[in-house]
Write a protein that binds this DNA or RNA. Sequence first.
RNA 1: GCCGGAGUGGCGAAAUGGCAGACGCGACGGACUCAAAAUCCGUUGCCCGCAAGGGCGUGUGGGUUCAAGUCCCACCUCCGGCACCA
Length: 929
Amino acid sequence: MPRYQPARIEPKWQSWWQAHDTFATPRLPSGRKRYVLDMFPYPSGDGLHVGHPEGYTATDIVARFERMRGTSVMHPMGFDAFGLPAEEHAIRTGTPPRESTARNIETFRRQLKMLGFSYDWGRELATTDPGYVRWTQWIFLVLFDTWFDPTTGRGRAIAELPIPPEVSAAGEAEVARHRDAHRLAYQSEAPVNWCPALGTVLANEEVIGGVSERGGHPVVRIPLRQWMLRITAYADRLEQELEGVDWPASIKKLQSDWIGRSTGAEVDFFIAPPGAHGAAFADWSAARRGGGFPQRPGHDVIRVYTTRPDTLYGVTYLVVAPEHPLVDALTTAGQREAIAAYREAAARKSDLDRTDLAKEKTGVFTGAHCIHPLTGAPVPVWVADYVLATYGTGAIMAVPAHDERDWEFARTFGLDVITVVEPTGGHGHSGTLFTGDGRAIHSGPYDGLDTRTFIARVGADLAATGLGRPAVNYKLRDWLFSRQRFWGEPFPILHELGPDGQPTGAIRALDEGELPVRLPELTDYRPGDTPDPPLARASDEWLVVERDGRRYRRETNTMPQWAGSCWYYLRFLDPNNSDRFVAADVERAWMPVDLYIGGAEHAVLHLLYARFWHKVLYDRGHVSCPEPFGRLVNQGMILGEMEFTGYRSEKGGWVSAEQRAEADTPARVRADQVEKQGEHFVLRDSPRTRVESRAYKMSKSRGNVVNPDQVVRDFGADSLRLYEMFMGPLEATKPWSTTGVSGVRGFLDRCWRLVVDERAEDPVLAPQVVDDQPTDDQLRELHRTAHKVTADIESLSFNTAIARMMEFVNVFTPLDRRPRAVLEPFVTILAPFAPHLAEELWEVLGRPAPVSLAAWPAVDERWLRDDVVEVPVQVNGKLRGRVTVPADADTAALEAAAAADPRVAELLAGKQVVKVVAVPGRMVNFVIR
RNA sequence: GCCGGAGUGGCGAAAUGGCAGACGCGACGGACUCAAAAUCCGUUGCCCGCAAGGGCGUGUGGGUUCAAGUCCCACCUCCGGCACCA
């Protein structure tokens, strides 16, 4: 019976922990605190994937380790439960999303408990809980009540927004409009991918080649009223405050690139009226000289944004985006038809397709010209979709000699190229592409200036003459925050209805006390014929409300899935608080998160959105720190098992992998049918046939998905945990290997036999476990293991920590007398990694449960030092011998001992020793001639 | 195209500029067994050699250094991300 049986001991200790509330966290920490957080999962219908336990085991080891060291540990888990799959399942089957979500959560919870994670389950939450939604909506109201004050760089209450006199003079409604236009949560008409055939709005990634991914129906981009969050106001802080957080440099860079700050200038180009434009331009420039550069461009100019105002003299044409508001006004009669056709084609393409077709530039001449602000020369205006309406001003000045895109466009359409920058130290050939910095030529008064000086000077000159101004732009766009979907948080917003039952355009926020706004009961989740969200079909009972004698219609969009995950780390601290989203003292005591582990797929969006919300809450005084996440680590992906793939021709014969043709079909080859030959694997029976070897991402279609339930059944939860940590570095991508799991299981079996008598009927101590005083060597082994494992957990190097424990077991397994005084501390070291086994061994050793809260062994430095060390002796850098010397032997002693080694002496005989390098405790090298 | 990351035994991997391959898998040999499994012990980078020993070896080519998997330069391959942001 007492073989190591995870199926018996794992459920036993899971129930014990649950019954004893072993991992319950107090409201406030005492002493040192650690907030150890996992990115919570979306509870999909497929259940847990082996990728989940990787990060979860890593944090669990850290949490358990810290607890054993007396740290107050916050280690919660919950579910990111709103989202599309549940809704699509509902459309297919009619099951309400709330039901399928509840079922999926149950599965996830069971699986997470089965793996023995030490979460405080009393803090579990789901983003779909009404008690959670309430506060998500409350935070939305905070965003709605906040404007960004550029003078202080902070968000402030909307009541503090200065109202210009002309606005207050225009009346109450105008003041409201002014406020609405400055809120961090605002409405705008943004283009969306609308698929009439499917009756739904699609995400960009659901549109391929202008048609829907599912069904291949045409998709058009239509403007639709949307909720936006003004994340761009925080762009600078989101970028700059990355400096203070302990994140991988690559993730910081990813975020910084995503924010994409660029500096340059905006310049206005006067639109030449047909006919005599000279005089009009002169008047216009004179007016600008006096009046300055207007805040918003009038209808008489095209405003462009450029990062290279030093190339102004090289402008040969302008381009406006197809959606640019002035296109109609610009287009001449002769070009009207061509422009209309072009714009319609552009509307059919998603942003993704536009960029996909990057090779071939397209565009149409509008027939209009602008006047170059510095030279007065006419410049043709084109419409082309290589210019994005959503970036900068939606219009550019084209400098084909110094911009690759403009260069390609100009070559396609035979437009002029004027060289105005030449590389410093050489002269560029006129009419070629040069995008680097250099020295100005053909640039009037600026000739000879280097690029940087030119940019500064022309910026000042443009500002002085009212023709332009320095400007900053971001790739980051405001966050499109509404979805035309059912399964998300409703907005706590009402739209006022006029006497005719139509919206007046006025909106009002619900009071805090009215939250949460619950989702209405619907029987049908299907999309309709219009882009109206499903909630628009709710009964009037839900939809229409009266407040203060006025009628309102509820907002029928819902929030995107990101909303719930933007602040869950705060709610975990105080999940049942019904007065506040988190109590202030609790927040101050636990925040920020000390260790945050999750997949790299959230490197940009989730982390950026959460940081944005956090900063707004910080500005408004609701949280105490500006950044939510201190140390961030991305676990790597776990791939399927390594596969060998051969190729067969149509006739059925093998084709070597490097010669395969399109028509050849791949075939799985078993590992025992191949062998390595040089760089490649070949078929054993046909050594000239190469086969491909690699591991693939796990996917249902490939059939290489590993199911954690199955692994637990076959090997136990502790084996799964330990294997995932032993596979390699946490952050690396690594292939699954079933034999690897069984190897780790073998180690746990050996741990078991180290302590337990396998031949006895009951779990009793092995006869080898004795009360002997441990020897010095045994203590050395123990303390070194403890020392190494401690350091490795702190650096998240779990694979080497486990290797060290294996060495320990290898040392003690052959011993007939194993001192309890060494085994007991070892069991505590094992506990964070294989907690169920450790609890069972602890019990067999007769110690009071739980080992999970036992003290982590103290390391005695004394046992880390060696008395004697063996150092390598090199001659000319080649290893020629080893000598054993006292650990504290100095350079001279070391050199003498090395020279005395017979083999070394032989090699040195008759040679001239040019130099000796002796590093105490490490090595000796004789350089001879 | 741009930006990351990675290339080390048959495989997963380890290695503050100082003995390359710890640890695990696999393989081979041995003990136990009627036998097998399990377990325990041993061997295992490649080549030459009976051995002692020697040579080669961390994607490729150069460089720095007494000493390079590790630092520098150039290149190749694979993986991931971004992709007309003016």
